[in-house]
Write a protein that binds this DNA or RNA. Structure first.
Lengths: 126, 126
DNA sequence: ACTGAACCTCACACGGACGTGAGGTAGGAA
DNA sequence: TTCCTACCTCACGTCCGTGTGAGGTTCAGT
């Protein structure tokens, strides 16, 4: 329960660079305690939060947007503002549209691959 | 059949900025003929190519990668190099993995939204 | 011929997540 | 104590698609 994980260790566990962890903190995505000498100390539980943040980044959310959502993630409790929840829904819908678009793009690529393959096998017979 | 579309018109048709069209040309994604005075002239058929390029950009491909793929798109014919086709398959697979990841992320968001909603309605009864 | 819009070529700015290096302190094993 | 590694804080660099402005030419309508 004591915050005992050092930044290097956390980076190793999550696969996120030390630089990025400091950046997340700077952006308000992550908090850390400090040892008397000023070194960051983390709780075990921070790891999953970081993985989640990574997930949101790769879904195209900005750090600013993630900050807005996090209250909703941390405490699905009383103080979860309606605004945060609405923001979450917005991002969910945006993501949904993006997925649909990517699926169409994938289909186009599949068609192109098929067309090339067809032409190729036609050549092979000639 | 004569290349008669001007860049502003093409931008309007495709929803891509004039700046971006020039950039695409600079990156080798697009070609243009020039009027005697040096103004770009495009074929009608360029429009769909541009839409496709946009599609690839939004799927996270870099202009460099797109350049590698385009031979495969333009002419699914003899000179379609095996390398280009292989590159296309790679990008298809990368996209596939990304879509899977996004779908998982969407599921997580859905869970969070549901959790918050549940808590909210619980409060309403109190 | 005049005028305003559209075009041209540089070329610098930006946003955002992260890399990287400088210059320095802390921690722990030999 | 020595020495190596991990940590700290600036702060500048990078990538890349795109915006933007300067300074100039061309086109089309009147």
């Amino acid at each position: 329960m004591t915050a005992s994980i050092r930044i290097g260790e956390l980076a190793a566990r999550t696969g996120v660079s030390v630089r990025s962890l400091r950046y997340y903190e700077e952006q308000g995505l992550l908090t850390s305690l400090r040892s008397p000498s000023g070194h960051r100390r983390y709780l075990e539980s921070q790891a999953e939060r970081i993985v989640f943040i990574q997930r949101l980044f790769s879904a195209g959310l900005s750090s600013r947007t993630i900050v807005d959502l996090l209250p909703c993630v941390e405490s699905p409790s009383a103080d979860t503002s309606e605004a945060a929840l609405e923001r979450m829904r917005q991002e969910r819908d945006r993501l949904d549209r993006h997925i649909e678009d990517l699926i169409r793009t994938r289909a186009v690529l599949d068609e192109l691959i098929a067309a090339n393959r067809a032409h190729r096998s036609q050549l092979a017979r000639a």
